[in-house]
C-alpha cells in the first residue's frame, strides 16, 4: 500500500505536540520515498482527534475500542501489529516518549522491523533508512543506519521536528480492531499526580541550578548562598534528585519543571537534552562547566569554562562587596 504511519498520542482528549512533530518527521520520509503519510489514532471515542489530525496527513487511520481508552502496551501492541500486517507500512513513527519507549522495542522484535530511537533527524538514501541521534549524553551525534527490512520503526525526540499542515485534508479510514480478548497480564491501575513540597521554582525570576558537578550534597549550601544573595532559588538537574539531595519539585527538565526565569545560572550541569527542554526559554543563561564541549554551552548566552568551586566563591565574594556586606 505504501505508507508511513505515525502513531498519535493524546492527553486529555487533545493531540500531543509530539504527534505533530512525529508527523513532520514522517512527512519528510514519505515525500522522499513517494509514500502516503497516515496518522494512526487509537482510543475509545477519538473521532475529534482524527478530525484534528486530518490537517496534517493524507490518511487518518482510526480504531476505536473501549479497551483502548487508556494506554496499555499489550492492547496497543496487538492492534498495531495487526494493522501493520494488514497494511504493510514501510515506516512506523512514534514519539520518544514514555509511550514510545514502552511500545516500540516490542513491536520491533515482534515484526522484525529495525528500530532507531530518539531520532533528531531522519533520512532515506539509496534505499536505506538513516537517522541522526545523540549519544554520550548529547556530547556526540551519531548517524545510525538500519539493516534492510520490510519495515522500520523510528521514535523521534520531542522538539526536533517542526509541525506543518498538509496541503489538503486527509481522509479518515476506520479500521476494525482485532480480537482483544485473551489473558491480560498487564493491568493499568491509574495515574498519580506529582507531589509538591513548597518552593516554586516556576515562579522564580532568578534560578541557580546545580548538576552533577556539585559533587557532594555538602556543597549545596554554597549554591544556596549564591541564590540567596541574588534573590533567587536553587533548582537542579535530574541526578541531584535521583541522589535524594533535593526534592523532585526542584528538578528542571522534561521529567520535572519547565522554567523561564530572567536569569538561569547552570552550575556543573552538562546539559543533557532532557534538562535543556526545561530551561531553554530562560531570558539569560549563564553556564559554568569544566568541559568546553558540554552541551549546556550550546544554549547558554554566557559561558565560563572553569571549576565551579573557584567561580562560585569568587562570585559570592564580589556580590557581597558591591552590596557592602563583609
Amino acid at each position: 500500500m505504501g505508507e508511513v504511519v505515525v502513531l498519535a498520542e493524546q492527553r486529555g482528549g487533545e493531540v500531543r505536540e509530539i504527534t505533530l512533530e512525529a508527523l513532520a518527521a514522517g512527512r519528510k520520509l514519505a515525500d522522499k520515498m513517494g509514500l502516503n503519510l497516515a496518522a494512526l489514532v487509537l482510543g475509545s471515542v477519538v473521532e475529534k482527534l482524527a478530525e484534528q489530525l486530518s490537517e496534517y496527513c493524507d490518511t487518518v487511520l482510526l480504531t476505536e475500542d473501549e479497551r483502548l481508552a487508556q494506554y496499555n502496551s499489550e492492547n496497543y501492541q496487538r492492534v498495531i501489529s495487526h494493522i501493520v500486517r494488514e497494511r504493510s507500512p514501510r515506516v512506523l513513527v512514534m514519539g520518544h516518549t514514555s509511550l514510545g519507549i514502552d511500545l516500540a522495542p516490542r513491536l520491533a522484535v515482534e515484526l522484525g522491523f529495525p528500530l532507531i530511537t530518539d531520532c533528531i533527524d531522519v533520512e532515506f538514501l539509496d534505499g536505506r533508512l538513516y537517522a541522526t541521534r545523540q549519544m554520550y549524553g548529547g556530547k556526540l551525534n551519531a548517524r545510525v543506519s538500519a539493516r534492510e527490512a520490510d519495515g522500520y520503526i523510528l521514535t523521534v525526540r520531542p522538539g526536533s521536528f517542526h509541525p506543518s499542515k498538509a496541503a489538503g485534508k486527509g481522509v479518515v479510514v476506520r479500521l476494525a480492531p482485532p480480537e482483544l480478548g485473551g489473558e491480560a497480564r498487564k493491568r493499568v491501575k491509574g495515574l498519580v499526580a506529582p507531589t509538591e513540597s513548597g518552593v516554586s521554582i516556576e515562579s522564580a525570576d532568578i534560578i541557580v541550578a546545580i548538576g552533577r558537578g556539585i559533587g557532594e550534597k555538602t556543597n549545596i549550601p554554597l549554591a544556596e548562598e549564591l541564590a540567596k544573595l541574588l534573590g533567587g532559588v536553587v533548582a537542579c538537574s535530574r541526578p541531584i534528585v535521583d541522589k535524594g539531595w533535593l526534592p523532585p519539585d526542584r528538578q528542571v527538565g522534561s521529567s520535572g519543571k519547565t522554567v523561564k526565569p530572567k536569569l538561569y545560572m547552570a552550575l556543573g550541569i552538562s546539559g543533557a537534552f532532557q534538562h535543556i527542554m526545561g530551561m531553554m526559554n530562560s531570558q539569560l543563561i549563564i553556564a559554568v562547566n569544566k568541559d568546553p564541549n558540554a552541551p549546556i554551552f550550546n544554549i547558554a548566552h554566557y559561558g565560563v569554562v572553569d571549576d565551579l568551586f573557584k567561580i562560585i566563591p569568587a562570585l559570592i565574594k564580589k556580590i557581597k562587596e558591591i552590596k557592602g556586606m563583609k
Binding site: 551525534n141 545510525v144 543506519s145 538500519a146 539493516r147 550550546n298 554566557y302 559561558g303 569568587a314
Partner: peptide, 28 residues
C-alpha cells in the same frame, strides 16, 4: 546487527555563547 552507527561526530551547532575568561576574580 539490526542497527549500527555509521558515523560519530561532534554536533554542528551554532553557538551564541560568549565565553567569559580570566581568573575566577575577573570572571566574577
Amino acid at each position: 546487527p539490526w542497527i549500527r552507527v555509521e558515523e560519530l561526530y561532534a554536533p554542528r551547532v551554532e553557538r551564541r555563547v560568549e565565553f567569559v575568561g580570566g581568573s575566577p576574580e575577573e570572571v566574577a
